[in-house]
């Protein structure tokens, strides 16, 4: 076929950020997949609850302490996360590096709190269906914290190498920050479900 050039794309940038970029949409699609997973896990919780003559089965409601600390911690982490995201948009290498180190700590700290959350359920996964589903919910969320932590650690290392000062990396940092927002947002319904629904 004969080709006729009707459009010159050379003035366009050689990379795109934010909602223009495929990576942003890919992260969104991942969040949709995982959000559906979380929603279904909560549905399982509510379904089993609707069948049980008493809920929680065989134990009292979980202790509020560790879960509430977790909620506050995750909510607090949003501030440095938003700052990192903003600095990444502004492409300020030094601030992004420092911010990522902060965010690495904010990835590790919830894991420490999580160690205290499991015993606060007063039940193990193999005791009954209530135990199974709360461990599933906590386990699922822990996996997400861990995944994001590993990604943040790798990105932090990357930002200190010669590959760091690159708009593409700043885009990665922005997408990683968006994913952390999702990890925090996903926790809220899980927290309400695990800690407050049994108290209703």
């Amino acid at each position: 076929m004969k080709e006729i050039v009707v459009l010159d794309v050379s003035p366009l940038t050689g990379h795109c950020d934010g909602s223009a970029s495929p990576a942003w949409w890919g992260t969104l699609a991942f969040m949709l997949i995982e959000g559906t997973g979380f929603a279904l896990a909560i549905v399982i919780y509510l379904y089993l609850m609707s069948l049980a003559p008493m809920w929680p089965i065989g134990v009292g409601p979980p202790d509020l302490g560790a879960g509430t600390v977790m909620t506050l911690l995750l909510a607090t982490s949003l501030i440095p996360n938003l700052l990192v995201s903003r600095w990444a948009k502004q492409r300020v290498t030094l601030k992004v590096r420092i911010g990522l180190i902060f965010m690495s700590f904010f990835g590790i700290a919830p894991l420490v709190v999580r160690i205290f959350e499991f015993p606060a359920m007063h039940i193990k996964w193999d005791h009954n269906a209530y135990g199974s589903v709360v461990w599933l919910l906590l386990g699922l969320h822990t996996t997400h914290i861990l995944t994001d932590l590993v990604e943040t650690l790798v990105l932090t290392c990357l930002m200190f190498t010669r590959h760091g000062d690159n708009p593409r990396r700043f885009g990665d940092v922005g997408d990683n920050a968006m994913y952390w927002n999702f990890v925090v947002a996903a926790w809220i319904p899980i927290y309400v479900c695990i800690y407050w629904v049994p108290r209703l």
Partner: peptide, 8 residues
């Protein structure tokens, strides 16, 4: 016979 295209 003809395809309109972009270059650059």
């Amino acid at each position: 016979e003809v395809l309109t295209v972009a270059s650059g």
